[in-house]
């Protein structure tokens, strides 16, 4: 394409008549180009078909449960395979709350890491630190699950929860189990930090050196540079990084299943065991009854799909509105 275009430009400039050979070659390029476009288009189409197919099968498979409960399924607070009664609230609540806790912890942490790596870190440490964080992103989630259950949960049970319970805050009540919604949120936070931090670092590095140097030259502190130059310049990327982390937290299965407690009970207490959409699916799919239980699990999958879609849509909307406004 580019070769053809540039030679055409050349020929226009020199104002010559096109030779047969030249036209033949342009046509040849055209033909190759169209084939190339078609092949790549079919690849792209494959993704669309896959996405549509998944969505469609989720809708078809979950139909019986919506026939039974209507939209009341979304508001049902009881999930009991034993009584054949299914409602989505417990799992949706667990998914949203664990992901919320994860973001609450991971966001400031990742932001700090990214700022340190791009602004204050000695050059010699940048690469090893950055690589270490990327390695953390590569740790399989089941390892986080094991580690959460065998190392983190006992530590939280012994040293963190008793102290917080004494403070008598309504959302943090005893007994300290170590396992529960709160612990799941903490494990998720550690899992999403490397994702958010490494993407944030990459976008912070795109800020033109001249902008930052001018600000430093005016006497700004590092914090002022980050707040007034780096953040406004990279808004889009930062939102993207957060959404990427949120996306991972929402769908995380194994690590959450290990530490969330797998209890189908609704509780405002963050130290109580709960269940998320992904962990409910992991626990119950293999042995589910085809009549209503499996459709109910498919419906949970559909809800997770919709939540993830909304998160992405929101991210796109927010990033499309943002523009560089230095403060």
């Amino acid at each position: 394409m580019s070769a053809a275009a540039s030679s055409m430009d050349l020929s226009k400039q020199s104002n010559t008549v096109y030779s047969e050979e030249f036209i033949r070659r342009v046509h040849q390029f055209n033909w190759q180009d169209r084939l190339f476009a078609f092949v790549t288009f079919s690849f792209a189409l494959l993704v669309m078909i896959g996405l549509g197919g998944i969505l469609l099968s989720l809708i078809i498979e979950s139909a019986p449960v919506f026939k039974q409960y209507g939209l009341g399924f979304l508001a049902g607070t009881k999930w009991s395979p034993a009584d054949d009664v299914f409602g989505a609230v417990i799992a949706v609540y667990g998914t949203l709350v664990t992901s919320g806790i994860a973001l609450l912890i991971a966001l400031p942490l990742s932001f700090g890491i990214a700022v340190y790596l791009t602004e204050s870190c000695p050059l010699i440490l940048r690469r090893p630190l950055g690589t270490a964080i990327e390695l953390l992103a590569g740790v399989p989630s089941i390892v986080y699950g094991f580690w959460g259950l065998f190392v983190l949960a006992p530590l939280i049970q012994e040293y963190v929860q008793p102290g917080i319970i004494l403070l008598n805050i309504p959302m943090f009540a005893g007994p300290p189990l170590g396992i529960g919604v709160f612990t799941a949120g903490v494990v998720l936070a550690l899992m999403v930090v490397p994702f958010i931090a490494s993407v944030m670092r990459d976008v912070f590095e795109t800020v033109p050196q001249v902008l930052k140097e001018s600000a430093y030259g005016l006497g700004c502190t590092t914090w002022e540079v980050v707040r007034s130059i780096v953040l406004p310049y990279t808004q889009t990327g930062v939102v993207g990084a957060v959404m990427l982390g949120l996306g991972r937290a929402l769908g995380e299965t194994m690590a959450v299943t290990f530490v969330i407690g797998n209890a189908n009970r609704l509780s405002g207490n963050l130290f109580a065991p709960g269940n998320s959409i992904a962990s409910t699916l992991a626990n119950e799919f293999a042995e589910a009854d085809p009549a209503l239980h499996i459709p109910a699990l498919f419906a949970l999958g559909l809800i997770l799909f919709v939540i993830s879609f909304l998160v992405l849509a929101l991210a796109k909307y927010m990033t499309s509105r943002s523009s560089f406004k230095p403060r």
Partner: peptide
């Protein structure tokens, strides 16, 4: 009330970790 574990192994792990 209580905490669920997946499989015999999951219950064993939870019991060993929760005092």
């Amino acid at each position: 009330s209580g905490v669920g574990g997946k499989g015999n192994a999951g219950v064993a792990a939870n019991v060993s970790k929760i005092a």
